[in-house]
Amino acid sequence: MEPFVFRTSVESIQLTGLKAASLRELNEGLEKTDGSSVYHHTHRFYRNYAFLNSSNRSDFDLWVGDNLKEAEVSERMSALDLRDYITLADLRQALLATLEPLKDVPGRWDRQVPPGMEFHFCRSVSLVLPAGHEAGNLEEFIAAIEKVDVGCLYHHLIEAPLHSAEGGRSNHFSGWLRAQGFPKEAQAVADIDPYRGNLEDLRQEVLGIFQARQLGAILKRAVGRLSRETAGEPAAQWLRHWRQEG
């Protein structure tokens, strides 16, 4: 079985040269800009603003709300559940759909922010490198999850699925766990909402899935030691019974 090689990613942010001063220009920019730009503006909060514990805030909804003062569109944008969009193309379409109701309202569609308050479309370049940990079995996998940098969790649970051919429905952790014969745990990891808290919360949530299994392993080792030490009854009887039940 292939070991799981933990990878992490860091980002380099570039300007695209596109900018918007109105909803019309935001709409045009969203249609033109590349996927890594849609990704950048909808995801950077999870990496850079964890301390605010803000949920589902993107640069788009902040700019529309704070600078353009279009509260309705801002609310619709911030209510988008990123898990609903398998690819960045889907997410782009969902963002464009939030703008749709104002297309026929000329006063609002073309109203411009003052100079200096424009929206600047940026993009992220991801640099993916080994995180310095590998796992050949479940114990090593759990131990590595405890140690890796949060960028590693971000890469495997958020970034890589979005950039993969299958889109956001599968993540690396679940794939490996399933291949290792842990389908329940694989599903539990797949069911995590990675956007709900900050990345340290995400680490705890993944570890929580394995907590019961870890306790079981500790108990098994303790009982095994006890049975060797007492050389038989009644601990051995209890152990046989517990193994049968397990």
């Binding site: 090689v5 996927g35 370049v125 991801s126 640099l127 993916v128």
Partner: peptide, 15 residues
Amino acid sequence: LSVLHPGQAIVRFGA
């Protein structure tokens, strides 16, 4: 590293 790998949205490094 991005400047050394121009035009790539994802730059992957091996072990």
